[in-house]
């Protein structure tokens, strides 16, 4: 394996120990921290390629750590969150975290999220993006589904483009609104739900059970390749 460095931040020693062993076993180079202060210090001393971050830390919020890290690194951040931390989770995602898993999580799930996050890197700048049967020509604002042209309104196209350029990544409602409609619309989540449902009618084989444009309840949306799951 590549030996990419992953920083794991959690205040529960046994969770930290399990994650460390798991990640080392998967070939990563692991550094650990139990507090927000340690996490920032460790990240500065040994810049990680990815961060696994507990949302609740004894000396601060994971959200603040995510925001700090985002100030100087593009390394993907995966949150460890609990069901009842919904608001905090969305705040952390808005602050720059890339994805989350809910405790207790499956080992395979976390490893898959980590691989996907590392693969995505800084996002895609290709002029033409292919995801499953979807082909999105960013330069010409043209979309094809299985060779058939799909007509989209300008906002629908921008929504699809932003999601496609971040394939697999969870985008929060706020992030999508900001990217597509502009900073003034960051709280108008119902716009987004309406456009997502229009978009699904045009690109999903079965809009009732979407396979490309997936809802993350309470958090946001992500665009995935149905064959990669």
């Amino acid at each position: 394996m590549t030996g990419q460095r992953v920083l794991v931040v959690d205040d529960e020693p046994q969770i930290l120990r399990g994650l460390t062993t798991m990640l080392r076993g998967a070939g990563y180079d692991v550094t650990t921290a139990a507090t927000a202060a340690d996490a920032l210090a460790s990240a500065a001393a040994h810049p990680p390629e990815a961060v696994i971050l507990d949302l609740v830390l004894p000396d601060g919020r994971g959200t603040d750590v995510a925001r700090e890290l985002r100030g100087w690194t593009e390394a993907p951040i995966i949150l460890l969150s609990a069901v009842e931390d919904e608001r905090e989770k969305v705040a952390a995602l808005d602050a720059g975290a890339d994805d989350y898993v809910t405790k207790p999580f499956g080992v395979d799930e976390l490893l898959a999220r980590l691989r996907a996050a590392l693969r995505r890197g800084a996002g895609r700048a290709d002029p033409v993006i292919s995801i499953g049967d979807l082909t999105i020509d960013v330069a010409n604002r043209d979309v094809h589904l299985g060779g058939r042209r799909v007509r989209l309104t300008p906002h629908e196209f921008d929504l699809l483009r932003v999601l496609a350029q971040n394939e697999g990544k969870l985008l929060t409602h706020r992030a999508l609104l900001r990217e597509v409609w502009g900073p003034a619309y960051q709280v108008e989540a119902h716009y987004l739900h309406v456009y997502v449902s229009h978009l699904r009618k045009k690109i999903e084989p079965d809009p009732q059970s979407p396979r490309y444009l997936v809802t993350e309840p309470g958090a946001g949306y992500r665009l995935v390749d149905p064959r990669s799951i």
Partner: peptide
């Protein structure tokens, strides 16, 4: 917290 630690450890052992 303990469930997460146990699930992580058990999942890692099985993988």
């Amino acid at each position: 917290s303990p469930l997460t630690a146990i699930a992580t450890a058990a999942g890692t052992l099985r993988n």
